[in-house]
Design a protein around this nucleic acid. Structure first.
Lengths: 217, 217
DNA sequence: CATGAATAGATTGTATACAAAACAATTATA
DNA sequence: TATAATTGTTTTGTATACAATCTATTCATG
């Protein structure tokens, strides 16, 4: 295997800090609803306010952060409303991608099967979440529509914090893995309507689980 | 009618200059493929580079502009590829919005009828484009999914320059108006499948027209 | 003549500076 | 006591400064 450089060289501070910001928002540190003090956060990240603001504005478009005039940035609070808005959107877009991939979907069946096996057995919730993401990315990887893929990725970043916060439990993982298998079987049969139905079920089920957990707080 | 303040007070330079930037990109001045010299453009707009860059980064997410490290901003060139990517996306999202609006669609039928009449008779291509945009906005206005509406608006901004550049001709306007009427009739009948079909037809027809004109250059 | 090194100028990416707005604490006022 | 005015501090939004990088030009070299 080709040796890979560990330190991929900087893509500019604005882009470099984005993953670190995302991590803080999803995993904690930057609690939903809390205010961001630019100078503090910039110091913590070791950059100046300029690239920090540019990165935060990027997150604003993804819906993770909001920016009010003269009031600055706040972490967008978690809301059932957002869940009800984004999951169906994601379902529709992923269906569109599947449709546009057509017979190419067959190509990824082996990989998908393997990932799903790992997913079912994954120990930690975070690992499960990561594998689920990879599974869906792989499913969509045959679509030529870069714009669509970027959109899906963006929306998935938005729901990641819900998935993290209201942790996935073993029951859900096993149900979700079964739904993945149903989709795989539909691909093998070449039954596009069943594929689409499967994707919708998978997302709407995920949404229900989150909404239920949010209600039970 | 309530008198409205003409000078709505500034939402901050970053937001203020956005429409002006968009206008320049769509209507000319900033030709597709051309490079943006931040200092020049900032001077032209009468602001400093800081809010200009923030606005340009916003346009980057909308796909109108690209930003490469140490090479700065360029206007994204027009491409058949983008057309083929965005129109179907838009069609799918507008269908989703229509579906989620359900019976509420009936409420906007009168307004839609009126707008469509103006649209058919509209003199200039630009006026037609504007009315078409308003028609679709109105159609979607009953959806409660703010995220979805924002997405659609963003994608429509992306295609506006194609619609402007490859000008709408009289033939297309009349066809498009007929398609609008078909959608309206489907709404009156309460036939959701026909509504969705109508929206798809409308967008895919628009896409074909643009693609043809792009090929005929 | 073509190719490449060297240099000067332009342009970006980031840091810093500063005025205006928001916020907090304190004192004045009913 | 509760409300309003005042002052001082914090924080934002924008402008400016500056180093690193890119680009164009000149000049040398085969």
């Amino acid at each position: 295997m080709q040796a890979r450089r560990k330190k991929k060289r900087s893509q500019g501070l604005r882009r470099d800090i984005l993953p670190r910001l995302l991590e803080r928002i999803v995993e904690g540190g930057l609690t939903p609803g809390s205010k961001i003090i630019e100078s503090k956060l910039a110091a913590e990240l070791g950059v100046s306010r300029t690239p920090l603001r540019e990165a935060l504005l990027h997150l604003e478009r993804e819906g993770l952060v909001r920016c009010d005039l003269h009031r600055g940035f706040t972490i967008e609070p978690l809301s059932a409303r957002e869940v009800r808005e984004v999951y169906p959107l994601l379902a529709a877009l992923e269906c569109l991608a599947a449709r546009s991939s057509g017979r190419l979907l067959h190509l990824v069946v082996p990989v998908l099967t393997r990932i799903n096996a790992d997913f079912r057995r994954s120990g930690s919730p975070d690992k499960a979440l990561e594998l689920d993401t990879i599974w869906h990315e792989t499913l969509l990887s045959q679509s030529k529509n870069a714009r669509l893929l970027a959109l899906v990725a963006s929306l998935r970043r938005a729901i990641r914090r819900y998935e993290h916060f209201y942790m996935v439990d073993a029951a859900r993982i096993s149900t979700s893995a079964a739904q993945h298998r149903a989709i795989l079987s539909a691909i093998r049969r070449g039954d596009m309507e069943a594929i689409v139905k499967g994707i919708e079920t998978n997302y709407l089920f995920g949404m229900q689980v989150i909404l239920r957990k949010m209600g039970e707080e």
